[in-house]
Computed example of a mutant assay.
Amino acid sequence: MKTVCKKDQCAGCMACVDICSKKAIQVVDSVVAYNAIIDEEKCINCGACEKICQENKSPIQQKPIVWKEGWANDQKIRKKASSGGVASAIELAFVNNGGTVCSCSFENGFFCFSSAQTEQEIEKFTGSKYVKSNPKGIYKKIFDLLRNGKKVLFVGLPCQVAAVKNFVGDRKNLYTIDLICHGTPSPKILERFLNDYQLDLVSASNIKFREKTKFYLENNQKRFTVPTVVDNYLMTFLDAASYTENCYECKYAKTERVGDITLGDSWGSELAEDIQCKGVSLVLCQTEKGKELLEQADLHLSDINLERAIQWNHQLHRPSEKPKQRDKFLKEIRKGKKFSLCVWVSYPKRCIKNFIKTILYKTKIVR
């Protein structure tokens, strides 16, 4: 098996698929890992895929020159956002100035990338998405927009930002925002979780992964568990047990960042609790382009202690660590067992506690 990058270290950025003129590359998802496999019968050995792969060649990463915390001044934007709405506010200002925003949205059962040029269109990008997305096709779209003199803002995970930079090169009109990332599971993991409830991704609608500081999976405004218990999907996600192999060796989980701006949650904020409940974003700015984006947007920003921000966001100094339950959990998943059973086998004590919490909530003993 010939792969574009080191075996089991593919991030699934899909840049190699977009660059290959012979359609000789297929990204295979084994749940445990992604691999970009080359069909040697179709391959002409041009080397384009290997050169563009962000795993093989990482763009320049820079230390922050500005660090802030804050939120969108527009309270409607802030309320809809998972955090403080800073990404949405920047995107809004960007399209209002004639630019195009490219980011991840959930459409027809797929977490894919699309473009937006109006305020209404950027609404589809709102909200955290705790699953591996598929940027296939967006690289060519961005390349064409830039070639035609358009300004483009790409918002995605650090590996995806790196892939965009490798694909289009150093472009004056390209602006980038990378998101602080814990790691991402295969969408097959989410599909398996939904199967326990007789759902699948295609039939799911309006999937939501969190509400400010509360983490729960919701489909069409219906939660999968009682409010006092974290559902099985997010339990494995938050424990870092469901990520693909490459995430545990992520080269972008450090203070030096690949985007013009880095956005995340301002965990460890020293602001009053009632302010934090409304959502507070962490904002790191690495470039003059980043400063330009911040100045154009309608934001409330205040100074923070960078060392404290790094301390409370471990992805700013190291990747997520693989828990001991991860191998067992994914082994059970690959056997085809129900998601809930895979979790019970891997986390028996936690599942017993959650079962008790559920009973106490349903009997109204605990609220």
Rank of each mutant, 00 (worst) to 15 (best):
C5A: 14
K6W: 06
K6M: 12
K7G: 00
Q9I: 05
Q9H: 12
M14C: 14
K23R: 10
A24N: 06
Q26E: 14
S30A: 13
V31H: 05
A36P: 10
D39I: 10
E41P: 02
K42W: 11
K42T: 07
K42L: 14
C43W: 12
I44P: 01
A48F: 15
A48Y: 11
C49K: 05
E50C: 02
Q54C: 06
V66R: 13
K68S: 03
N73P: 09
R78D: 11
R78I: 09
K80E: 13
K80F: 09
A81D: 11
A81Y: 08
V86W: 10
V86Q: 02
F94L: 01
N96C: 10
G98I: 10
C102R: 10
C102Y: 14
S105Y: 13
E107Y: 13
E107G: 02
F110R: 15
S114A: 08
E121Q: 14
E121T: 06
K124E: 07
K124L: 09
I138F: 08
L145Y: 15
L146D: 08
K151P: 09
L153G: 01
F154Q: 00
V155T: 12
C159F: 10
V164Q: 01
N166M: 12
V168H: 02
D170R: 13
R171L: 08
N173D: 15
L179K: 00
G183S: 02
I189G: 06
R192Q: 13
R192F: 07
F193M: 05
L194I: 02
L201G: 06
V202G: 04
A204H: 03
N206D: 14
I207H: 05
T225D: 14
D231N: 09
N232I: 01
F237R: 01
A240V: 04
Y243T: 06
N246I: 11
N246A: 13
D260H: 07
D260N: 13
T262W: 08
G264S: 06
D265N: 02
E273C: 02
I275R: 12
C277R: 15
G279Y: 08
S281L: 04
L284S: 00
L284M: 07
C285G: 09
Q286A: 15
G290Y: 01
L306T: 02
E307D: 15
R308D: 13
Q311G: 05
W312Q: 12
N313I: 05
L316P: 01
P323R: 05
P323V: 11
K324Q: 11
L330E: 00
K335D: 06
K337H: 07
W344R: 12
K353Y: 14
N354L: 02
F355P: 00
I356C: 07
T358Q: 10
T363N: 01
T363Q: 00
I365H: 02
I365R: 00
